[in-house]
């Protein structure tokens, strides 16, 4: 920082600072090396499977052909889940932070936080036992009335265990974390900006669109990315709910659905051996890369609006 002159003595280092510096440096190193370790493991174990020829593995396909439907299914399910969860969590968070009376807002906040503590197996069971059967008539209706859209081309699944059902379960699972983050960010909107909007004659909703949402934009993106990360990697709920058949299809309601990488690993791993394990780990590496790419993209998106972010 400062330019040192020869007459200046060395800066005094307090033991507390040194300890703090040590602890925080170690933490940083641990997390980075863990990440590096995971990447190295995935690469080392996955590459033999990724380079294996079609007749060496059980699936009878090259790695690229094997993984492509899984990548599609992973992204497709996560994107649908996010499309459902984002507006709902922003709405709930706004309700808690700016609309509901305090007496109501706090219990709702607690309930939402509680949802995050429910294990994914429970969501999966609920998805199979309750959601899929009760949502199935809707799929029939969608096929009949909106069948001209490729998403609802049908034929409607008889069990309701479709990618849309899985995405709904995923959406409910990512809702708490997204809502909690959005709520915190909305609550941090500077009072000055809210008052500026109100003093110009903004209604409550206009105040929210003028002062709260723009200020929270980068935080909403971060919340969505965290949620996307969870949706991409969620295993149990998808593995339980989805009846997968390894196709690439945007059809949301039929009984032939793409699987996701994580669910496929969980379902195939117990019966896999040798090179097949390697193939599965290779798909894990692909998932790792996707998650990484999504995060980089999100950072870039936030950084593009830095000047107008309210952080300066």
């Amino acid at each position: 920082m400062s330019t040192t002159t020869e007459t200046e003595t060395r800066a005094v280092v307090r033991p507390g600072d040194r300890v703090f510096r040590g602890i925080s440096s170690i933490s940083a190193i641990v997390i980075v090396s863990t990440l590096a370790g995971v990447a190295i493991f995935l690469t080392a174990e996955g590459v033999p499977g990724m380079t294996a020829s079609a007749d060496q593995v059980k699936s009878g396909e090259t790695f690229l052909r094997y993984v492509t439907p899984l990548v599609f299914g992973t992204l497709w399910a996560a994107v649908i889940a996010l499309a459902i969860a984002t507006p709902v969590s922003i709405g709930v968070a706004l309700f808690i932070s700016h609309v509901a009376p305090r007496r109501l807002a706090q219990p709702i906040g607690y309930v939402i936080d509680l949802l995050a503590a429910v294990p994914s197996v429970v969501y999966g069971s609920w998805g199979i036992l309750t959601l899929s059967s009760s949502i199935q008539p809707l799929y029939v209706w969608l096929e009949r009335n909106l069948g001209f859209l490729p998403f609802f081309a049908g034929p409607a699944s008889a069990t309701g265990r479709t990618i849309l059902t899985a995405a709904v379960v995923l959406a409910i699972m990512v809702l708490p974390i997204m809502t909690a983050i959005c709520r915190e960010i909305f609550l941090q909107t500077p009072r000055l900006h809210e008052e500026a909007a109100l003093a110009l004659g903004a209604t409550r909703w206009e105040m929210i669109t003028m002062a709260v949402l723009p200020y929270a934009r980068s935080g909403i993106v971060s919340a969505a990315m965290l949620a996307l990360g969870r949706a991409l990697g969620e295993t149990m709920a998808v593995a339980m709910v989805l009846s997968a058949s390894g196709v690439i299809s945007v059809n949301l309601i039929s009984s032939t659905n793409p699987s996701t990488i994580a669910a496929n690993i969980a379902l195939s791993f117990p019966e896999a051996s040798g090179l097949d394990v390697s193939v599965l780990i290779g798909t894990g590496l692909v998932l790792f890369a996707i998650t990484f790419a999504v995060n980089v993209a999100a950072r870039a998106l936030v950084a593009r609006h830095r000047e107008f972010s309210g952080a300066n």
Partner: peptide
């Protein structure tokens, strides 16, 4: 009422996410 009776606050509070022109036009 607030559309007829404007207010300027103690600390300058332009909307940080808006440009200078957008700030003027906000109301």
């Amino acid at each position: 009422v607030r559309r007829r009776i404007g207010m300027v606050f103690q600390r300058p509070n332009p909307f940080p996410t808006m440009s200078i022109a957008q700030n003027v036009l906000a109301g």
